[in-house]
Simulated scan of single mutants.
Amino acid sequence: MDANQHSRENPFGMDEACRNCPALCEPRTQVVHGYGDVGADFLFVGERPGPGADAAGVPFAGDDGAPFRRLLERLGLCRVDSDPDWPELVNVYLTNLTRCRDPDRRPTDDEIENCEPFLNAEIRMINPEIIVPIGERALHEIGEEYTTAPVDDLDVVAQHGTAIRGRGFELVPMIDPHEQSDEQIQSWLESFAALMASDYRQTKGRQER
């Protein structure tokens, strides 16, 4: 699978007509694959597309994605004046556990499992230094697959902004931005800014940027 970095949207050319989850094909507007820099150090993973993402085809797009994008802007990872449906990201890739949205419910375990090959392919191709699971479910799914920590020990509130050793990278969990207090937003920003300023890159054969 080759990347097309001329396009930030679905740069790996994943199936945009996927029907692996029949119950999601009717309520979705479109399949929402990952978006951003294919050579990014930072990979952010939510649970499912929001309403704006479902409409635009880009993770965390639209008004409902604004609280998350403001965090990226404050870190210098997203241009402040960029189109909310097509944000201009810097060294960042955005994706979700699942690729389709049902407006009335969260994804089932089977739907997350059906989408797992898409996420695993993105992680392999991007080979990020830092993965940010957004919300409890993303933390558990990614933690189970990519860390040696017992899943029952993973808690997005307790570990919000705390680095967790993964397999070749670190996880830095984030509480859903819609659910964060002002204090939690500030603490996560400070923790992540400190990480960005550190020598966070692992020795794993990455090319220099």
Rank of each mutant, 00 (worst) to 15 (best):
F192W: 04
N91R: 12
E122K: 02
P173G: 08
T95Y: 05
N127W: 06
L24N: 06
L171Q: 02
E16G: 02
D182T: 10
L154F: 08
F118K: 08
R124S: 13
P177I: 05
G46M: 03
R106H: 09
A53N: 04
G39N: 14
G135I: 00
E179K: 10
T95Q: 01
N10W: 10
A55L: 12
T147A: 00
P49G: 00
K204L: 11
E73W: 10
A158H: 09
A193L: 12
C78N: 01
G76C: 04
L189I: 07
E144S: 12
G161K: 05
S187C: 02
P27C: 00
D2R: 15
Q202N: 07
D199R: 14
A55G: 10
F192A: 01
E122L: 00
F44D: 00
G166A: 10
G13I: 05
A55C: 06
P150M: 09
Q202L: 10
R124W: 15
R167F: 11
D182R: 11
E116T: 15
I175P: 02
E9P: 03
V58F: 13
R165S: 13
N20W: 13
A149N: 08
P87L: 06
W86P: 00
C25F: 11
H160G: 01
G62L: 04
Q186S: 11
A193P: 03
I131Q: 01
V58W: 12
G57M: 03
D64K: 06
L171I: 00
A163V: 08
F12W: 09
P177T: 03
L139T: 04
R99D: 06
